[in-house]
Design a protein around this nucleic acid. Structure first.
Lengths: 111, 111
DNA sequence: GTGGGTACTTACCTCGATGTCAGTGGGGGC
DNA sequence: GCCCCCACTGACATCGAGGTAAGTACCCAC
């Protein structure tokens, strides 16, 4: 866990979200449980190292659940925890706001 | 404005929020319009340089409004725009989630 | 036996956001 | 005269998140 103590709830929430790819990871896991490789393909641009790193942090914060099957070709599945699901729902309005902003920017771009 | 193109709305929203002090600035401006010095005192830890910087970025993104009065001791007032207010409302659920997390962490801390 | 896929780890490097500190040009208080 | 307050600006330093590239160990397909 990050800095602490937090000034307010927003501060505490942003701390969990903080990381270049975390919201995209959470977003990807919203729809389905994913294997490591799938996740990497769903979050274009992440490197394996950083993906692992951020997944570990999200796991430590109780947002994602990691389940590894001890099979011959290794298999690991990631999914959102209950807490992660709540976080995802809390991010909904923010995503909607951002969507409107994207639309506005596109509009302005076309002129 | 940041990177672009955005993968999703959440991505676009986080881009605006991105900056060590921005959510705290928005949070502070939620309740009242503020002068520069007031803002600095309300966001403990920011330096003048960075506060100025982040205010400029928020202004460029249409989140805050800057109004300077050409008086003998300079006076500048910052406030949220309509868009900024919408963003602030969109951040509400996230703040609430973070508040619950803070409570949970405090609980765990006490044992 | 060469190459690809699984899920990582490790050492090293880069670069930009942030911090530090000093300067600006007045005004007012003591 | 000296210092603080206002709202900044600019040069310089730091530091850590993230990127790069290679290695691991094992299996399967061709």
């Amino acid at each position: 866990m990050g800095k602490q103590p937090y000034v307010c709830g927003l501060d505490a929430a942003v701390d969990v979200i903080d990381g270049k790819w975390k919201v995209l990871i959470i977003w990807a896991l919203n729809h389905q449980r994913c294997r490591f490789g799938e996740l990497r393909r769903m979050v274009p641009g992440v490197t394996e190292k950083v993906l692992t790193q951020q997944l570990r942090e999200l796991e430590a914060d109780g947002i994602v659940h990691r389940e590894s099957y001890d099979t011959k070709p290794p298999k690991v599945e990631y999914s959102l925890t209950e807490l992660g699901d709540e976080l995802n729902r809390a991010l909904g309005p923010l995503g909607a706001w951002g969507k409107r902003r994207m639309a506005a920017l596109a509009e302005a771009g076309r002129g």
